[in-house]
């Protein structure tokens, strides 16, 4: 564990709490992509299969994995049931099969061992890299977003961004590299570039998040 990893994971935790806070205080999931959230459930379920196979890493690791699975399922419940009237499926129209199918194919090709858990792990890494697309698509379509929704997306981007110095640190301190995670992680972070540009130049200056026409 190094400081980049720790703060990355904390940013990930923060993103979930920001999202829950947004939905529960506004009693609305307006602007939130159900599809992105459903993809995160798929990501966590396929990546954390080892939880159910008795692999033990650490208490921290197990606790975080359970939290990510539990909270992502809870968010789906909130959107689908508790606040379903505030969810607009006509805005959330990104075709998830464009993300699921290529991620699965990449998982079959690029993996560290051709076993169910390793292929699923690779699939989850590729899927996570692109899972934000439906959410960014809503942002693109509406052209604006509530500040709190943008804080959620920013926290997710920071989480992924911090994993990059973590890998550099681990390369020098442990000599280990995980090429699949690194390549997918760099792509994933890159997807946030446009978003961060608007976030830093507008939202953090106190202006509304509005995409240029």
């Amino acid at each position: 564990m190094n400081i980049f990893r720790l703060f990355g994971d904390l940013a990930h935790l923060a993103s979930i709490f920001i999202l829950l806070h947004k939905v529960q205080t506004s009693r609305s999931c307006r602007g939130i992509s159900f599809k992105t959230q459903a993809l995160y459930v798929a990501v966590f379920m396929t990546r954390y299969l080892d939880l159910f196979l008795g692999t033990w890493v650490s208490f921290y690791n197990t606790l975080m994995k359970l939290f990510f699975i539990g909270s992502s399922c809870y968010i789906l419940y909130l959107i689908r049931f508790q606040f379903r009237t505030t969810y607009d499926p006509n805005l959330d129209t990104f075709r998830v099969e464009y993300l699921l199918v290529p991620s699965f194919i990449l998982g079959l090709i690029f993996n560290y061992e051709f076993t169910l858990t390793e292929v699923m792990w690779s699939f989850s890494i590729f899927l996570e890299a692109v899972a934000i697309f439906p959410q960014l698509f809503i942002l693109q379509r509406t052209g604006e977003a509530e500040a709190i929704t943008t804080h959620y997306i920013a926290a997710l981007g920071i989480y992924r961004g911090l994993y990059i110095p973590n890998w550099i640190y681990r390369y020098y301190s442990e000599g280990s590299v995980d090429p699949i995670a690194v390549v997918a992680g760099i792509v994933q972070t890159g997807l946030y570039a446009d978003f961060f540009y608007v976030y830093f130049t507008k939202v953090l200056q106190g202006q509304r998040f509005e995409l240029p026409a």
Binding site: M1, R5, D9, H12, D50, T55, V57, S58, N61, M64, K65, F68, Y112, E113, E118, W121, Y163, R170, E174, S176, D178, A181
Partner: peptide, 10 residues
Amino acid sequence: IREEKAKDEL
């Protein structure tokens, strides 16, 4: 096989 060390990442 994925390195044991990397398996602690989330």
